[in-house]
Structures are given as structure tokens and as C-alpha cells.
């Protein structure tokens, strides 16, 4: 790895995963450069979400390795063997990654503000005042400064998802994972959530992996698109190329089906 001057921020090598007899990912190789915003598209069951969950360490790969800035994620090298990692080293690597979920997963017993502050205070050790100030800034950024004291159940789905984005950002990750973040929302609330991500993309240049069914959004926000099917990355290119002039027949068929529905 030392031979590579421009180290990728995320590198997956030969990553495989199955649930029981069903193989979801088949030897994925993927390098992500810092600043890339990757849209993962493909039919359901193609392994997009599983790929994100592996990067978040919510699942363990059966085979292969994942590295973040050159450091193994979820694994530790002992001699010439790889063993499962936990504890401080896992957390130091995992802290570079943040995730926003389809179902928001806000903590229902905490207000919006507490949801955003709790991690910075208790995991990252910020002072309460510092964390509160940052949390309020983030709430303002997602347009919910006036909802700081609301409990999640008092917020609409779109508002909850915006709080969830602010909560993930508060941990200052280098890579953000967005897992179908508008799929659980009523159609009229999709726009407000996508607007936040769009703004984030243009303002910060943060590295993002975005699983989405919103093709217009993918085309607009991403600077790289992966089309996945059957646990493989079938096509990998710039949005204009993948959407406008797909090389693979499978990509063509998929885009034909979703765009002309």
C-alpha cells in the first residue's frame, strides 16, 4: 500500500457477504477517493444497502477486507492472520464514518437537540456547551433551529430525517453513508431532505456513498455512479456516461425500467 501515493479514503478488496444460502455481495473491489460522491443504484437485492452496512460495521464480511485511510476496519492483523477487531482501534477507524438510515432511527427518548449532542458529549468528549452550540448550528443548517426541544414523535418524517442528518454530521465523519434516506418518506417530504444533502455536497466536498432510487437526484449530486446487480458492480462511471450512455445492457435495461415508469 505504501507504493500508492494517493491513498484512497475507502478501499474494499474481495468483499463477500451472504445471508444463509443467499450470496448478497460477490467479491467487491472498490476504491473511493476523498471528495467522491458515489451514487449506488440498482435493483433491490443487488447488494447496495449491504455494501453500506459493511462499511458501517453493522455487518461483518465473510471474505475480503475494508480499509479506511489505509487502516483495516473491523479487523486487526495478528501475525499473518486477521482477527475480529473491537475496542479502541475499531472505534478510532469507525469514527471516520457516519450513516443516515432509511428509518431515521432517532433516539425517541431524547429531544432533537439531545439526539445531536449526545454523541459529541459522551463519545467524543466535547464539553456540553461546545456540543450544544455546534448542535444548534447544525439544526439551523437543516432548517430546524426552532424544533430543538421537540421529541422525534412530534416531528414529521422529513424533519426527523433532517435531524438524523444533523446528528450524523455532529460526529464530524470523513465519509457519509446515506441509505435510501427518502424511501420511508411521504412524497411531499422528499424534497426537503434531498435539498439538505445537495447543499452538503456543494458546500463541503465531503465523501459520500449514497444508495438511492431517486435517479434525478443521483445524477445531479453524484460525481460517480455505480450500478450494482446480483452482488457485483456491473458499471462504474461518471453520471453523464452511466445515465446517458450506459455500456452494459443490464444497466440499460434497469435505467429503461426505472426512468420510464
Amino acid at each position: 500500500m505504501g507504493a500508492d501515493p494517493r491513498q484512497p479514503i475507502l478501499r474494499m478488496q474481495g468483499v463477500s457477504k451472504s445471508y444463509g444460502a443467499v450470496q448478497i455481495l460477490r467479491g467487491i473491489d472498490l476504491d473511493v477517493e476523498a471528495g467522491q460522491r458515489i451514487a449506488l443504484i440498482g435493483p433491490s437485492g443487488s447488494g447496495k444497502t449491504t455494501l453500506l452496512r459493511l462499511v458501517m460495521t453493522l455487518e461483518t464480511p465473510e471474505d475480503g477486507t475494508i480499509e479506511v485511510e489505509g487502516e483495516l476496519l473491523g479487523l486487526r492483523r495478528v501475525g499473518d492472520r486477521l482477527v475480529k477487531d473491537s475496542g479502541a482501534h475499531l472505534r478510532s477507524v469507525r469514527g471516520k464514518i457516519g450513516m443516515v438510515f432509511q428509518h431515521f432511527n432517532l433516539f425517541p427518548h431524547m429531544s432533537a437537540l439531545q439526539n445531536i449532542m449526545d454523541g459529541p458529549v459522551h463519545v467524543r468528549g466535547l464539553s456540553k456547551d461546545q456540543a450544544r452550540e455546534r448542535a444548534l448550528d447544525l439544526l439551523a443548517k437543516v432548517g430546524l433551529r426552532n424544533k430543538a426541544d421537540s421529541l422525534p414523535r412530534q416531528l414529521s418524517g422529513g424533519q426527523q430525517q433532517r435531524v438524523a442528518i444533523a446528528r450524523a454530521l455532529a460526529m464530524e465523519p470523513k465519509i457519509m453513508l446515506f441509505d435510501e434516506i427518502t424511501s420511508a418518506l411521504d412524497p411531499e417530504l422528499v424534497g426537503e431532505v434531498l435539498a439538505i444533502v445537495r447543499e452538503l455536497a456543494h458546500e463541503t466536498g465531503m465523501t459520500m456513498l449514497i444508495v438511492t432510487h431517486e435517479m434525478g437526484f443521483a445524477r445531479e449530486v453524484a460525481n460517480r455512479v455505480l450500478f450494482m446487480e446480483g452482488g457485483h458492480i456491473v458499471e462504474d462511471g461518471e453520471p453523464e456516461q452511466v445515465f446517458g450512455n450506459p455500456r452494459s445492457d443490464r444497466t440499460k435495461a434497469f435505467l429503461g425500467a426505472v426512468l420510464h415508469r
Binding site: G95, I97, F101, N105, L106, G119, H122, A168
Partner: peptide, 24 residues
């Protein structure tokens, strides 16, 4: 999803239990 959110926010298991899971 609550456990997963705790992992995504990098909570160690004990802290996740204390702050997130047990209160619920």
C-alpha cells in the same frame, strides 16, 4: 435500528446500553 444508530455514532457497547437502549 436503535442499536444500529448507536454503532453508526460510534458508541462503545456499554455506553450504548446506558444512554440509548436501557432508557428505552
Amino acid at each position: 435500528g436503535q442499536h444500529e444508530a448507536a454503532v453508526a455514532l460510534n458508541y462503545p457497547p456499554g455506553l450504548a446500553m446506558r444512554r440509548i437502549i436501557f432508557p428505552q
